[in-house]
């Protein structure tokens, strides 16, 4: 290889590495920034203060526990719905639908996944009102398309020999479905974790429907407040310690999402092995 060719290779490598490094550096920078902005409020007694259950930031009462409860509860409540409806949808899409139905199905799921969350929020608010149930419906509509596509992708990746062998052994549609579900259980679990992360991060649509009252005991007809909706509602109007605590709230939701994504990565790696 000539000197010039080696130089071009070197420049290409530098270029690719720089571009590839932008995202990890941005995430690191984001976490450092959030911590730095929130650090002015970090004191020895903050830990006990944020674990209280009263959120009155104007009175410097920063109990973010009800916000964490709201975030986890709403995202976790949507999971059974997503799994129970998403897996059969993906199975139908990949295994049983004809080509025409597959085209229509993929267009519908694609459209739903591309809808701005605010449109979904307004629609659900006007149809089902403002409560925890509506929040779960919003999250379902926003999370389900991604879950279905992830499960469908793992179904497409199954070895075709598996289906042929199963049929040769005389298994019916039900038996084949059970066999396949066992094969894709780990990617499905990974998709569930990604959906959970997506649920943790949703903000604007939820502000329309969640009611936004911080509570430790959410009920289906009552309100709920999440970490992200708190940021949307209060960041523009916050100042001083209130402004700082909202950065700690943002850091909390970032870490929650990071943990679910890391867990999902671990499961998908195990599946590949």
């Amino acid at each position: 290889m000539s000197l010039l060719a080696r130089r071009s290779e070197f420049f290409f490598w530098c270029f690719i590495t720089t571009i590839g490094g932008i995202i990890p550096i941005s995430v690191g920078g984001l976490i450092v920034y959030l911590f730095a902005e929130g650090s002015s409020i970090i004191t020895w007694d903050l830990f006990s203060r944020i674990l209280s259950n009263s959120w009155f930031p104007a009175d410097e009462e920063f109990g973010i526990l009800p916000l964490i409860v709201g975030t986890i509860t709403s995202a976790a409540a949507v999971l059974p719905l997503v799994v129970c409806l998403g897996i059969p949808s993906a199975l139908y899409f990949v295994l049983f639908a004809n080509e025409r139905a597959q085209t229509i199905f993929s267009m519908v799921v694609g459209t739903l996944s591309g809808l701005p969350s605010v449109v979904v929020g307004i629609f659900v608010m006007e149809v089902t009102g403002i409560n925890f149930t509506s929040a779960v419906i919003v999250l379902f509509l926003l999370v389900a398309p991604q879950f279905i596509l992830m499960v469908a992708t793992s179904l497409f990746q199954l070895h075709k020999g598996l289906l042929i062998s199963a049929k040769a052994l005389g298994l019916g549609d039900f038996g084949i479905t059970v066999l396949i579900l066992r094969q894709i259980s780990l990617p499905v679990f990974g998709a569930m974790l990604v959906s959970l992360g997506r649920g943790f991060g949703e903000a604007v649509a939820l502000t329309f429907v969640a009611g936004n009252v911080a509570t430790m005991m959410p009920d289906w007809s009552g309100p709920i407040r999440t970490l992200t909706t708190t940021i949307v509602l209060e960041l523009d109007f916050a100042t001083g310690a209130h402004y700082s605590i909202l950065h700690i709230v943002a850091l909390s939701v970032t870490l929650l999402i990071a943990v679910t994504v890391i867990l999902s990565g671990i499961f998908s790696r195990r599946n590949n092995q």
């Binding site: 009611g211 936004n212 309100p223 949307v232 209060e234």
Partner: peptide
């Protein structure tokens, strides 16, 4: 509160709905 809204238009939307 049963509902907490942000700006005036959000309050109006909530009360209207």
């Amino acid at each position: 509160s049963d509902v907490i809204a942000g700006n005036n238009s959000q309050v109006i939307k909530s009360v209207a709905n």
